[in-house]
């Protein structure tokens, strides 16, 4: 009986790590059910996963029904952790790791460090630089937009400490990027700020939410799918609002005839 409870604990913890770091609903449900099928008994596992919470119940012969609920908050995107947790569950089911070892490994996965801030800053600069060139900006535009990318890379460090809703983060980030670009524009270093802003917005667009929403809806997980779709729409609206606020503010300060 103890063993079954531990197994349920483990399955839910794996599910939590995967959901938290951006796995699709169907993958999490499958993983939990496969882990629970590892028991000696037929536990008849049932799971229900949404992006904000995980429910799982088992029905063993020695005890009644056990149901556990786990609330998931602070979602980020870290596909390496998803992949590692997935791998761990596979090896656990194949019998290569014991339950105790698997728990240890899971907590190692959970606390695995992400990239350093400097790597993130350089990556954002490269992303924004390439997109500005792809949207037919000049080299000058690309260099200017990569300073906005620098700001976007630094924001990840700042937002790690402050707890904000993800939409407010998007709003703040797009305002910061637009402000940087408008500063250059103000000093006359560039003329076509539009292309630069569009390039600098690319790291913020809700591509992840769109892809995952599509997958979830396709697998029939309508609750997760519509939740993610709402996330995508709201993120897009807030990012656009951030740019709009900054542009209007600049226009207002400069007397209304600049943009």
């Amino acid at each position: 009986m103890v063993e079954e409870k531990l197994l349920l604990d483990f399955a839910l913890s794996v599910g939590e790590v995967m959901t938290k770091n951006g796995a699709e609903t169907q993958r999490v449900e499958n993983t939990i059910e496969i882990i629970l099928s590892k028991s000696r008994y037929n536990l008849m596992p049932e799971t229900f996963v949404t992006p904000t919470g995980i429910f799982a119940s088992i029905n063993g012969p020695l005890h009644g029904t056990i149901t556990k609920v786990k609330r998931v908050d602070r979602r980020t995107i870290n596909l390496e952790k998803v992949s590692a947790a997935n791998d761990l569950s596979r090896r656990f089911v194949a019998g290569e790791v014991t339950l105790r070892k698997a728990f240890e490994e899971l907590s190692e996965i959970e606390t695995r460090p992400t990239y350093k801030t400097i790597t993130m800053v350089i990556t954002h600069m490269i992303i924004v630089f390439s997109f500005t060139l792809l949207f037919s900006g000049t080299l000058n535009d690309a260099l200017i937009s990569s300073t906005a990318g620098m700001v976007l890379g630094l924001r990840m460090k700042i937002f790690k400490k402050i707890r904000l809703a993800s939409f407010v983060r998007g709003l703040a980030a797009s305002m910061m990027a637009t402000a940087t670009i408008l500063l250059w524009y103000h000093f006359g270093l560039t003329d076509n700020y539009e292309i630069i802003i569009v390039g600098a917005l690319m790291p913020l667009v809700p591509g992840f939410a769109i892809t995952n929403a599509a997958k979830d809806v396709m697998y029939g997980d309508f609750i997760s799918g519509s939740a993610r779709m709402l996330d995508a729409i709201l993120t897009a609206v807030f990012i656009a609002a951030g740019v709009g606020i900054m542009l209007t503010g600049y226009n207002y300060l400069m007397g209304g005839a600049v943009l």
Partner: peptide, 17 residues
């Protein structure tokens, strides 16, 4: 350019190395 941008996104989303 698109390769660089996608590679950058792979790093931002912490894809396995």
């Amino acid at each position: 350019l698109a390769f660089l941008a996608s590679l950058g996104f792979a790093v931002v989303f912490n894809c396995p190395k």
